[in-house]
Design a protein around this nucleic acid. Sequence first.
DNA 1: GTAGGGTTAG
Length: 607
Amino acid sequence: MSTRKLLSTTHFHPIPLIVRNSIQLVQNCTTPPNPPFIPKGPSVLATTLIKSYFEKGLIREARTLFDEMPERDVVAWTAMIAGYTSCNNRTHAWMVFCEMMNEELDPNAFTISSVLKACKGMKCLPYGRLVHGLAIKHGLDGFIYVDNALMDMYATCCVSMDDACMVFRGIHLKNEVSWTTLIAGYTHRDDGYGGLRVFRKMLLEEVELNPFSFSIAVRACTSIGSHTFGEQLHAAVTKHGFESNLPVMNSILDMYCRCSCFSEANRYFYEMNQRDLITWNTLIAGYERSNPTESLYVFSMMESEGFSPNCFTFTSIMAACATLAFLNCGQQIHGRIIRRGLDGNLALSNALIDMYSKCGNIADSHQVFGGMSHRDLVSWTAMMIGYGTHGYGEEAVELFDKMVRSDIRPDRVVFMAILSACSHAGLVDEGLRYFKLMVGDYNISPDQEIYGCVVDLLGRAGKVEEAYELIESMPFKPDECVWGPFLGACKAHRFPNLGKLAAHRILDLRPNMAGTYVMLSNIYAADGKWGEFARLRKLMKRMGNKKETGRSWVEVGNHVYSFVVGDEVGSKIEGIYQVLENLIGHMKESGYVPDLDCLVYDLEDGT
DNA sequence: GTAGGGTTAG
């Protein structure tokens, strides 16, 4: 498009001032600058501006400018597709691509690789295949960027890696990106062995290694939990001179954390010559999974070193508060999240629902859930688990039905949540209905854990024989996920013979579980079999097997008080026994009769 | 003037 044509619309000018000024600048240049000045056409200027708008997140401005361009070439269209994709707006990227096709413009390799990235982001295989067809039609397959993007799309959208591998095999001159994309494809679907196989082939074929190939290979080691392979790669990273590359260092740190090698992780962290926010987040997330108190300590260190937490940091911290039941701390961080305007983040909101629920504040979980503009499967599951653990079975059932009406397909975890909620609220028929729905309508085959939930549902309600019939009908050998709740039901509802059977099945599978011995000995005691009771307790002593002591803690003011049975916590927290007495009073009024038999036996054991 | 692979959360 000529400058004259553009300027002819000056009176009702649709082009933004900045472009007009640039054009003016070009026009006013009487002496060409040195080096020789090549005036750019308006389409070039507008395209550059579109790209920079997207880089700044100014999506609407980019679109307005694009709509006002009198002539739009393939580069401008591609800039729009790539821009929308980079701002996670893949649907619009796809719509722009369709619009471009309708205008019968020929895409180039840039267009195809950009739109494939959008298909990958949408996890939409039919669109991806359509673009693959168009690439062939326009003779663009064979361009390395297109082939690599096709691999990436197939690796992300397909159930298997077959299509991605087929594209990979067809690439005549593979580059480093082709190899890394294939390794990432395997690794991101949790097939670390597949990823490492490709990496090994890459070594054998003497393809040049770069930091990208190392960080994804380290991630593959992490996904299989092999710190042995991880350490070998760590040595290889040093040998290749990439030990100062931050993303590589971060993936090594993550590997040590996820393989539970915390002394190595800690040493590595302190030896790192540079750290970024991801480094800190990796260590915080690593500790959150195994030692939440330490993760809070690392968080305070991070802040004292001047790093500002982001959504990732806060999500880990919320999970730590949830595990530790630190309501005060969680509330303070929630305040900071709101002040920072991060409360719209989906993962963070999900973590908040979980934190409030685990800290006993289900009303605030509900408030966070209700205030979310967008919810995913995790949001619904977290809320349902919260209702379940607080005994709100009816609310959990309502939520499940609402979720299905919102077109969200329940998965195995949601069914576990609803079954557990029904179980704790005594909603046996409802629970069984969901079990049938899961198998019949959603085609989810029940596994050990699901069977465990249904056994628990029946067992808690006293339907111990029905639970046993279900176990007998299982198509595979039940494990401790099934026998565990069954044993609990036998003890609670006094079915000593079935209880003994369950306990022996668990001991066959896990001979060192002290809790099972305690349960079994209590069943014998309740049945008056004192000889068996004494034999088991002696056996436990000989084995040096001790049940882990149950510990409780309560947050008062800024302190967390932790105690076991018999601790004189009352002297530390004034009024705690008064609260306990009030609670016991309420429980008695509600008709609760404590199981004093078991209490005596447990005290004897000191647990 | 437009396109690629790697590290952190749920």
